[in-house]
Amino acid sequence: MMRVAFTVGTGLFCVAVLLVWLFSPPPSPTIEAPQPILPASRIPLAEVSRHGQADDCWMAIEGKVYDLTPYLPLHPTKPGIIVPWCGQEASEAYRTKTRGRPHSAEAGELLEKYLIGQLAE
């Protein structure tokens, strides 16, 4: 019975992946467009605060500004934990997440992918 379940389950999974590939339309240019702001740009906190929504989420962390909009769906915690920090200076929250412990080095490497500029003093 388990062999049948494995075969049927694997077949249905492959069909489902194929269907998503076939019927998911290509992303609109606005979503795929490169960020207009270069990582070397200097961004004031006032500009960061204008991006305080889940669908437009910038954060200032340790003097750098990140556009975390595409990352939010991938973050392992509940949105209620990370979304309130959108548009904020979030260094303290980044350093002291669960029970006061900092994020891992891997999280730091991941964060750099979303860098869009330096925080202007």
Binding site: V20, W21, F23, S24, P25, P26, P27, S28, I31, P73
Partner: peptide
């Protein structure tokens, strides 16, 4: 879940 937000996000979320 990504499809319910926008169909164009379904494949990028899976691939």
């Amino acid at each position: 879940d990504a499809w319910s937000e926008a169909p164009s996000l379904a494949w990028p979320a899976l691939s």
